[in-house]
């Protein structure tokens, strides 16, 4: 058991190390540049709208960059191992196929963790700098308008409080966790698909398609769970497959709801994280079984 953990850890570590040494993180510099650029781009909007858009954009950009890294690093993992023949030396050691899959997946999860963390730091810095700029420019505006002294205080404090409440909302942390969970789910899907195909491009495309369908999985589930729905047997079978296999990506719209100002409780966040963990566990178990079958 301990040995198994040690092997999984070694595999995860090497996967993370590979990504780091191959300069995957350079992409984060791009993220930082875009995040800063965008905050300037949005400066035409009203000040509280501006913070809202920046939040929306940053979560979006984290998802896009994260998706890119999750898809590429997972989809190319097994094909690269096969092409470089490193997999032969690894699996010739006393290593189980399932340990290989779990270790490699945990490596991707760690990589996504590092990437999400770094992006979050950039994101929070940009957000708070923007908030300070907004507060400063609003204060200046109020000073120039010649508002009575008492009201002036009042206006400035109110504005400062609303802007800071938006920029330092603890819900942002929940949002970041959910973005991370979503990326881990996508990586798990890619892992399953890459165990049964040989083409990385195919894995990337199929996973992305599943990700898109995942946003509509709810409709398929409604049809399948509702016996009164009238559908042909083929449609019903297809919808059942979608409902059973594809994760419900729409539930992560909780991130968008936060931006809109809907209250998202920690209970809901933990519910979603639990769901993600369950889905990932099953997906990785499936990937292990499929990979054990595979000829190398």
């Amino acid at each position: 058991m301990m040995e198994s953990v040690q092997r999984i850890f070694a595999l995860a570590r090497i996967t993370l190390l590979e990504a780091m040494r191959q300069k995957v993180l350079n992409i984060l510099i791009l993220f930082a540049v875009i995040a800063v650029g965008t905050s300037l781009y949005f400066s035409t909007l009203k000040s509280d709208e501006q913070i809202k858009f920046l939040l929306d954009f940053c979560f979006g950009a984290m998802t896009v960059f994260g998706l890119f890294i999750a898809l590429i690093s997972t989809a190319y993992m097994i094909p690269n191992e096969l092409e470089n023949r490193t997999i032969y030396t690894i699996l010739a050691k006393p290593v189980r196929r399932s340990e290989f899959i779990v270790g490699k997946y945990l490596g991707v999860v760690a990589l996504l963790g590092v990437v999400t963390l770094l992006m979050s730091i950039v994101f929070l810095i940009v957000l708070n700098v923007q908030a300070q700029i907004n507060i400063a420019s609003y204060t200046q505006l109020v000073e120039q308008e010649g508002v009575p002294e008492l009201d002036k205080r009042q206006l400035i404090t109110t504005n400062t409080n609303t802007v800071l409440a938006q920029a330092q909302d603890p819900m942002i942390l929940q949002g970041i966790l959910l973005v991370y969970a979503r990326l881990c789910i996508v990586a798990a899907m890619a892992m399953v698909i890459s165990t049964i195909t040989t083409s990385a491009i195919f894995t990337v495309c199929t996973t992305f398609m599943f990700y898109v369908i995942g946003h509509m999985q709810g409709y398929a589930r409604d049809v399948v769970m509702d016996p009164t729905e009238q559908y042909g047997p083929i449609q019903k079978a297809l919808l059942s497959c979608i409902a059973a296999l594809i994760p419900n990506m729409r539930s992560f719209s909780a991130i968008d709801e936060m931006v809109l100002g809907t209250k998202v409780t920690w209970d809901m966040t933990f519910g979603l994280l639990g769901y993600s963990a369950f889905y990932i566990t099953c997906a990785i178990a499936l990937a292990s079984l499929l990979f054990s079958e595979r000829e190398l």
Partner: peptide, 26 residues
Amino acid sequence: LLIVFCVPKLLMETAIDASQRAAGFH
């Protein structure tokens, strides 16, 4: 595995949808 997995999955999804509907998710 697939059969055992999809039942709790669907149940969890239904529960999450219900809680999100209750919270007024657009």
